[in-house]
């Protein structure tokens, strides 16, 4: 990283060397960014193209139509899938925020016997590939009759070592003198938690909340396994199913992809900062 201060002797902001370097920089980054966005553009293009197979599309649309979207909404329970996904991502997020802020606070600020060992145990589970636990959890939920239910979708994802790790870090970074002051001001341990420390953890809660919501929203493998009935599909599973059903009708499939991708991109654009911070802090699972 060149330093942010460019205002020093010898740094030329003109001349052929400077301009060729600049051109190279913008050219490289720009072409890369265009290539990166190309699949999105192609998706949108196909979704609004009049030919349902998408064949013969060019990079600039000749005419646009919403026929594919109308088709999609007419033949598929898209609303239900949206609802499922919101319930799924929303519940997992709420449970995570609640449970993990409780545990994160206890692991950071309450001294109790076995605290460090418990934390290690929680964090060590990050190492386990999800395929190891998917099978037994599926068996467990089958026994409970929770296959194709919301509780079956939601419950297993509440155990989130990353959330505990993140919030413990946050609470650890807050000064313990605040807790002392709160105790002198008459708070017990629980009041100290929700009156003093919890409001101060808002940035981390926002980060974790948005991060959890998006990763749950886009989670593919778990709903794929537990939601086998069309009425319980979440959007990613639904897209997969739509594609298998309408194999060559790419116009329809891309309309479905657009419906899934757009909300995520909107969330990302409006909360880029939080999401990137969450990503950076957690270095999440593949």
């Amino acid at each position: 990283m060149p330093p942010s201060n460019y205002d020093y002797p010898g740094y030329e902001r003109s001349g052929p060397a400077y301009w060729s370097k600049t051109a190279l920089l913008y050219g490289g980054v720009g072409i890369g960014a265009l290539l990166w966005s190309l699949p999105f553009w192609w998706m949108l293009l196909t979704a609004v193209s009049a030919n349902p197979t998408g064949a013969g599309s060019s990079l600039i649309p000749a005419e646009t139509t919403f026929a594919n979207f109308e088709d999609l909404f007419a033949t598929q329970p898209v609303g239900r899938w949206f609802f499922n996904t919101i319930v799924f991502a929303g519940s997992v997020t709420l449970f995570n925020l609640t449970f993990d802020s409780l545990a994160g606070y206890a692991l950071a600020k309450v001294e109790f016997v076995g605290r460090e060992k418990l934390f290690l145990l929680f964090v060590a589970t990050i190492m386990v590939p999800s395929m190891v636990t998917l099978i037994p959890v599926f068996i467990l939920l089958s026994e409970l009759g929770w296959v194709n239910t919301y509780q079956g979708l939601i419950a297993p994802l509440i155990a989130n070592p990353l959330g505990i790790f993140l919030l413990r870090q946050q609470f650890k970074s807050l000064p313990s003198s605040l807790g002392d002051a709160a105790k002198i001001d008459g708070c017990n341990e629980l009041q100290t938690f929700y009156k003093v420390y919890l409001p101060l953890a808002k940035p981390a809660l926002a980060t974790l909340g948005i991060y959890t919501f998006v990763t749950t929203w886009k989670n593919f493998e778990w709903p794929l396994i537990i939601a086998s009935d069309e009425s319980m599909y979440t959007l990613p599973v639904a897209l997969f199913a739509v594609r298998n059903q309408y194999f060559t009708e790419w116009g329809l499939v891309m309309a479905a992809a657009t419906v899934i991708v757009l909300p995520v991109l909107v969330v990302f654009m409006s909360a880029q900062k939080y999401f990137i911070r969450g990503m950076t802090l957690s270095g999440m699972k593949g």
Binding site: S37, P39, F40, V214, N219, P236, V237, L239, F240
Partner: peptide, 22 residues
């Protein structure tokens, strides 16, 4: 630019796979 390069990370594997198939 950062958003352009980062956008794919936001996508569900299902969406990435299906879009790229096309």
């Amino acid at each position: 630019f950062r958003a352009a390069y980062f956008m794919p990370v936001m996508l569900s594997a299902a969406a990435s796979g299906v879009i790229w198939r096309w």
